[in-house]
Design a protein around this nucleic acid. Structure first.
Length: 278
DNA sequence: CAGAAGGACGTTA
DNA sequence: TAACGTCCTTCTG
């Protein structure tokens, strides 16, 4: 043995890190409920939405568990500009850090401005993906709780949904078109498939072009430029913190016999081809 | 050494 | 049960 990439033993993680992220769900549900304009109140028992936190921090605040685990450096920068994030910072300082979540201090470690910029860009990219993933999961949850189909939700509350996304960090490319494309795949009532996820990334070259891109879009040939990054994004979407490229690629290979993805005629490392390109 | 291929078995919705 | 997720061996460039 010994060929596999080192995995992460999730049993060693603090329970709050990858546990249920109720905050975002509560807030999203509350906003959606408000947007419907009904007088009904959610019966959330002891876990009532923290409206004050919602007003102050909105989605950022309620996502802090994810931010905390993934990009502490980004969180540090964000918290400096947003006092609403003081609580997560307190938590961060008050307990031991998992080994895989280092707090990067670019000044102390003498990172170049360029490297620092890259780290920041990548962090924003990942955070954006995380937040979008979480919100879309909330939509699925909301569909179940409201006992309506995802299509009904999208049709009845587009303004509320869009307004959510407008609160996200602006990157200049988070367009409503992309939102709908994600909603399509995420609101199908089924968990997202890996091939769908890869397509999502490929549809957003501005955001993910550095980690996955088309080599020949017409033929459906794409290349994974940063295997670790793509695996990490997939792990975030599926809430599998131990995901790596070894496992992701195994799932891709399962598509061979299903006729969904194959290797191109001229096989290259990290290059795959959709059997049925869009 | 990273990646490719695929077997075997466990997990989850 | 499908679709992975995990771990593994063997092979390749």
């Amino acid at each position: 043995g010994g060929r596999s990439a080192p995995g992460l033993n999730t049993s060693q993680l603090p329970p709050t890190v990858y546990g249920p992220r109720i905050g975002l769900t509560e807030n999203s549900l509350t906003l959606m409920e408000r947007s419907r304009g009904s007088g009904e109140q959610w019966d959330l028992g002891e876990t009532k939405p923290n409206m004050e936190a919602l007003e102050r921090g909105g989605l950022y605040f309620s996502c802090f568990d994810m931010l905390f685990t993934e990009d502490a450096a980004w969180l540090v920068k964000l918290s400096e500009a947003s006092p609403a994030l003081a609580l997560p910072m307190t938590r961060m300082e008050s307990r031991e850090e998992p080994e895989q979540c280092p707090v990067i201090d670019s000044q102390e470690q003498g990172l170049s401005p360029e490297l620092e910029r890259q780290v920041e860009e990548r962090s924003l990219e990942q955070v954006q993906s995380m937040v979008v993933g979480e919100v879309l999961k909330d939509i699925e949850t909301a569909c179940k709780l409201l006992n309506i189909t995802p299509g009904m939700l999208v049709c009845t509350t587009p303004a509320a949904t869009i307004s959510h996304f407008q609160e996200l960090p602006a990157t200049g490319s988070h367009t409503s078109e992309e939102l709908w494309s994600e909603a399509d795949s995420s609101c199908s009532g089924q968990p997202i498939h890996l091939w769908q996820f890869l397509r999502e990334l490929l549809l957003k070259p501005h955001n993910y072009g550095r980690c996955i891109r088309w080599l020949n879009k017409e033929k459906g040939i794409f290349k994974i430029e940063d295997s670790a990054h793509v695996a990490r994004l997939w792990g975030l979407r599926k809430n599998r913190p131990a995901m790596n490229y070894d496992k992701l690629s195994r799932s891709i290979r399962q598509y061979y016999k299903k006729g969904i993805i194959r290797k191109p005629d001229v096989s290259q490392r990290l290059v795959y081809q959709f059997v049925h390109p869009v």
